[in-house]
Simulated scan of single mutants.
Amino acid sequence: MELYFLGTGAGMPSKRRNVTSIVLNLLAERGTCWMFDCGEGTQHQALKSPVKIGKLEKLFITHLHGDHIYGLPGALTSRSYQGGDTPLSMYGPKGLRAFVETSLLVSDAHLAYPLEIVELEEEGLVWEDDAFRVTAMRLEHRVECWGYRIEEKDMPGKLLTDKLRELGLPSGPLYGRLKSGQDVTLPDGTVVRSADVIGPPIAGRTVVILGDTRYCDGARELARGADVLVHEATFAQNRQELALAYDHSTSVDAARVAGEAGAGTLILTHISSRYQEEEADVLLHEAQELHADTHLAHDHFSYTIARKPAGAL
């Protein structure tokens, strides 16, 4: 599981930062990737990266400001040309369907795959299968805006094969039964309990990706106990009044959310174009004073979310 940042700027692109788009690489887990927001030029950014638009399985939109959605028509059509023929699901605020369908209609675009668009109405569960769960909550921004919490479910521990060999069990079908949770009775009447030969469970990982927001309860609730929190940091702390006026966050706001939520790694993104090159370091240093485990994302920055040791739930 890896986060890859295609665009990390705010409002409008700059020479150093394109507008917002983040990819959650799940190739190892499910052979696909998920995208969060798709600002103008996202498909061009993908061409300079390992990201394959054809591998997109889900696309989550936080809100309908242009710097988060103007790349959608190009990315959706390019997915067809890059071999994407499997269904694609999109999630986002009311109005997303009208934007996408109108863009495709007036440009006479034809997709080679089924497209499902889900407009969010209530906070809570967005999607779930046997391996992942996605929930969403409203944030505080000038327009309806959502944050997403992606939770990988815990996995069963590994089969303790050394212990099985000590008990005299040859490898084969019995191993599979024990791995699936079934107890096994040996020819001599000995009962081997599955629970005794399975190691501790492997904890799932939790990633929280927020849209544009001022400091708010929704952000804190979504981020509670997350392994990684991606939070906007449009301004430095000396621009707090400007941040409040436009319903954005400062680097200190982001660090406060991470600390109060007990989140692990904090990654700052959505950086105003006023902070170029070394000037952006002030955002990082301000956040690190409150939350030491903080990174400042830049375009094509990647971060691998490592698994916790077995049993560390």
Rank of each mutant, 00 (worst) to 15 (best):
E101K: 13
A203E: 06
G92C: 10
L104M: 10
V51F: 00
E279V: 03
T304K: 13
T206M: 10
T304V: 15
P13Y: 14
Q45N: 00
P93A: 08
E241A: 15
T86M: 07
G147Y: 01
D130I: 01
Q43E: 13
R138Y: 03
A98M: 08
A112M: 11
G218C: 08
L268V: 05
M35A: 08
S249W: 04
E278L: 09
G157P: 05
Q240K: 15
F60V: 03
T62H: 15
V184E: 11
C33P: 00
L178W: 08
F99C: 04
E116V: 11
A219Y: 06
V19F: 01
A306Y: 07
L244Q: 13
D67Q: 11
D281N: 13
M35Y: 01
R30D: 13
D130A: 14
D217E: 14
H298C: 11
D299K: 00
Q288V: 08
L111Q: 06
V23K: 01
G71S: 05
L59T: 07
R256Q: 10
P309F: 09
A28R: 13
S78A: 14
G95D: 03
G124E: 11
V23F: 03
G176K: 13
G95F: 07
L6H: 01
H68F: 04
I271V: 14
T185E: 13
E121C: 09
I305G: 04
G9W: 10
P87E: 13
E289G: 10
R220W: 04
D108I: 06
G95R: 09
H300G: 00
T190S: 05
G259K: 14
G92K: 05
R149P: 08
E278D: 11
K163S: 13
L268K: 07
L88H: 06
D299S: 02
D227K: 10
V207L: 12
G172I: 10
L178A: 03
A112H: 14
F132P: 10
S80M: 06
P114M: 14
D299N: 02
Y246M: 13
E116T: 15
L160P: 08
L64M: 12
L186K: 01
L159S: 12
G66S: 11
T77H: 13
H298E: 12
W127G: 06
K52F: 00
H248C: 15
D129G: 09
T86G: 05
G264P: 02
R220C: 10
G168R: 06
T269C: 09
Y246N: 15
Q276F: 14
L174H: 08
P187T: 08
A297Y: 12
L178K: 05
L59N: 02
R16A: 12
L26R: 11
G9I: 09
K15M: 12
L125T: 11
F60M: 09
R138E: 15
N18I: 01
H110N: 12
G259M: 10
L167D: 01
F99E: 09
G95C: 04
G225R: 08
F132G: 05
